[in-house]
Amino acid sequence: MKKGIIITVVLVVIAIILAIVFVNLFKERDTTEMSNRVVSTVQDGYLNDEKEEGEFETINSYLDKVLATGDELTTAYRNEVQNFKTTYLNYTVIAEFYSKQIIFTEYNDAYRNNKSDVMNGLNNAQNRVNSMVNYINTNSSTFEGNAYWTARSWDDVRDYVVDIIDQTNRAFRGLQNIYSGCVTSQVANNDFATLVLSTINTELANVLEHMSESVNDTVGTMVNAYLTGTYQDIMTYIYDSTLQEKVKDIMEKNQESTYYSALLNGTICD
């Protein structure tokens, strides 16, 4: 009897282990969860710049009010506000680009290694945006016609802003790795796209590092040149041997390439 019970317990344990192994072996492996998160953030979340009374509109209106306070704002703070304003707009365009390609991806190591950065980055940024929006809405009456308090409010929100940029940059780094490693389209996923997206990420990191300084909107220039419309330059790269030579030169020589400035200026395809 005792022997029978032991054998039964052992068999049950083995069956459970085998079941877990087989479920993991055969469970569907796809990138749906991550791609849905990106799409929903672009369509309904903080990266939607068209939603009426959405997070983007609320924050953007607030930033304009802060900038309008004139001399009440220090130069460093003015730069921070301006940098955040342009960066937030750029984020929405970059995210929209990713959202159009990211649902056509395959499951592989690049996805596994970067998924958490994307998910956690977007989630954390969304939470900080929500907090910032809540602060803005709660104190909206204080800001009304009061330049002094509006300017001072930046002290309260800049922590949100730093987190939003930091976490969104984190998500975009993950997205760029997933784009390069997982997007199945060999027309859309090419060396030029990788170069553009990785350079944008580098410039976004520069924005955070030099928030208090007057920074050229290199990200905006590149985004407008390469990530809007029909993404013609990216989509025709595989047929453009001239561009391929330029990209190869930049990938070999980085900032020392003669084409690097053109890349940043959005004129590399000219």
Binding site: F104, T184, S185, Q186, V187, I238
Partner: peptide, 12 residues
């Protein structure tokens, strides 16, 4: 081969 990858995405 590259083009047929595009076809797969189109069909999807």
């Amino acid at each position: 081969e590259k083009f047929l990858t595009e076809v797969d995405d189109y069909l999807a």
